[in-house]
Amino acid sequence: MGKPDAEGHGPADGLPGLPPEWGRVVVPDDASALAAEAAQIRRELRRATGLPGDHRALGLPLLVLLVAVLTTLAGLLVVTWPRAGRTDRPTPAPYSPPATLAGRALPALDLVDTGQAPVPLRGLLPAMIILLDGCPCPDRVGDALAAAPAGVSVVTVTGGRTVPSPPPDQRQARALADPAGGLRSFLGQPARPGVATALLVDRTGTVTRVLPDLGPVDAYRGDLSALAG
């Protein structure tokens, strides 16, 4: 069965020294002689771990782990996947001019005329000043010209340095450009496509009314007439 050492307790060659409490250790010449002991050890290990006797014992824990991983990944995809029609752009707030603009003094702005000569805006008061950087609105301008009493100027203002030709009305508006954007900055609101904005300013330079969307003349006729007083 094996070669005992000099004391008769183990093999003489090929094994390191073993603890004496292990007792006599015999290594058989034929490994098949250990089959019964190996089978017994495997049975004891199975009973101790509570797992089935073959490699399928690892299947259930691996399946549970796989389901957990897939569930986590699915949750991450639901949160991060782009949705149809999703947008991160904020909803624009409705236009509203500053509530305190009426009663404030018009700033001393220098605009330019068709020849690029500076024109002090306060030198044209009292006036209805119409900003056309969002809409040319020739009909609205024509209505304002027709309703403005004598002594009240109608001033049209565009952005940039180009001053468009005024409409061929019997009475012409004073057409100016605002290269620095000072008047729009004073309003505190950007230009809106298709919309003309107007300010009514008395002879002292005080803003009496702001018309965010210049509508029918009946909406401001009384205010326009009051500028002549």
Rank of each mutant, 00 (worst) to 15 (best):
A150W: 00
T206S: 10
P164F: 07
G181T: 13
L131D: 15
V195R: 15
L145Q: 10
A198E: 05
G194C: 07
Q170I: 12
P138G: 14
Q172K: 15
R203M: 06
P166L: 06
D143N: 13
S225V: 13
L224R: 07
A196C: 12
A147G: 01
A144D: 05
L224H: 09
Q172R: 15
P164Q: 04
A219G: 14
D218K: 04
A177N: 07
A198C: 03
T208P: 01
A146R: 15
S165A: 14
V155W: 03
G188T: 10
G142K: 10
Q189K: 06
A175M: 12
T208H: 07
P136A: 15
L227R: 02
L200K: 12
P138V: 07
D213L: 08
R184C: 12
G188M: 03
P179L: 08
G188V: 11
S165G: 11
L227S: 05
P212T: 03
Q170N: 02
P179D: 03
V210T: 14
A144Q: 13
P149M: 05
V141M: 02
L131F: 10
S225W: 08
V207G: 05
L199D: 01
R203H: 13
D202T: 06
R209A: 15
R140A: 14
A180G: 14
V210Y: 01
P212C: 10
V207H: 08
L200D: 11
A219F: 02
V163F: 06
L145S: 06
Y220S: 13
A148I: 10
G188Q: 05
C137M: 01
G159P: 08
D133Q: 14
L227P: 02
A148W: 05
A180P: 00
A146E: 12
T197D: 00
R221G: 02
P193F: 11
L200T: 05
T162H: 15
A226H: 04
A180K: 12
R192W: 08
C135R: 14
P216M: 08
L200R: 13
V155D: 03
A150I: 04
P168E: 09
R184D: 09
L199R: 06
R140Y: 01
A196R: 03
D202L: 04
T162V: 14
P168Y: 08
Q189R: 14
V195G: 13
L132P: 02
T162K: 12
G194N: 12
P190V: 02
T156G: 06
T208V: 13
L199P: 01
G215L: 04
T158P: 01
L187T: 03
Q189I: 13
D133N: 15
Q172G: 09
G194S: 13
D202E: 05
P138I: 13
V157E: 06
L131I: 09
G151C: 08
R203E: 07
D133R: 14
